[in-house]
């Protein structure tokens, strides 16, 4: 379902430098030897694959490369080296409401954001009521989203994002948004999606959730895979390494 083959991701840290005439001018005057370009390897020769129906967790400290992997699998970034193969439609649940236009009403945004998520017109028309129902925003459908509270925006975004039965689900932390009632509801909805038999790539800092949901775990550190394997053993090892 997902094959990641010897993938490396190189970010050029020097990118921001030497970008303006002012900076170039200063560099000439300062006679300093120009530093060699600095690179940052967000991922270094990473290979793994995920079979259909598997729930694979990614763990590791901040900056280990977890989110970069998600971005590569969802197609937002192309790897510098290596190959990624994904068979199936990816539903990224990385950041919600990315396609919102605050000037538009909730109704208009459901269609716009749905289109951004890659849903078809027919699908959205069928699921429209379901989205509205779940979001609990029936009375505010024709209000511009800019007048919404942040909780309401999150509820709407969540409802649109989770309406699909995805082939491949990419999750960056289980989201629970809105008020207590909705938090519970959204958390359950996500758990339901993950457990629903789809293929999932799941990033979380909560080892409990990882242990509860994942069939396999990939432990990343500094852009490299430390270990892949059984959830229980790797989580325990990781925990010891971090806090022991």
């Amino acid at each position: 379902m997902i094959t990641v083959d010897k993938v490396s991701m190189k970010f050029d840290l020097g990118m921001e430098k030497n970008f303006s005439f002012k900076q170039a001018f200063i560099n000439i005057l300062s006679f300093k030897k120009r530093k060699k370009k600095e690179y940052f390897m967000a991922l270094n020769n990473v290979s793994f694959n995920v079979k259909k129906g598997e729930v694979v967790g990614l763990i590791g400290s901040n900056g280990a490369g977890k989110s970069t992997i998600l971005k590569i699998v969802s197609g937002v970034m192309k790897p510098t080296k290596g190959k990624v193969e994904v068979n199936g439609v990816v539903s990224p649940m990385i950041e919600l409401g990315a396609g919102f236009d605050l000037e538009l009403t909730a109704r208009e945004n459901i269609y716009l954001n749905g289109a951004v998520m890659g849903y078809s017109k027919k699908f959205l028309e069928e699921k429209f009521d379901e989205i509205v129902e779940f979001s609990e925003l029936k009375d505010f459908l024709d209000v511009p989203v800019k007048n919404f509270s942040s909780g309401m925006v999150a509820k709407l975004a969540f409802s649109i994002a989770t309406i699909v039965d995805p082939e491949i689900l990419i999750v960056d932390e289980i989201l629970s948004v809105g008020d207590i009632k909705f938090q519970e509801k959204s958390k359950n909805k996500m758990l339901e999606m993950i457990k629903g038999g789809t293929t999932v790539l799941f990033v979380s800092h909560s080892l409990e959730q990882i242990k509860e949901l994942c069939t396999r775990v990939i432990w990343l550190e500094h852009g490299e895979i430390v270990k892949i394997g059984d959830t229980e053993t790797i989580c325990n090892e990781y925990y010891k390494k971090q806090l022991g």
Partner: peptide, 17 residues
């Protein structure tokens, strides 16, 4: 095409709001 039509109609709505 659906996304494209959505973006065009978005621009329209926002422009004349």
């Amino acid at each position: 095409t659906f996304l494209m039509s959505q973006m065009v109609s978005r621009d329209f709505k926002v422009k004349y709001k």
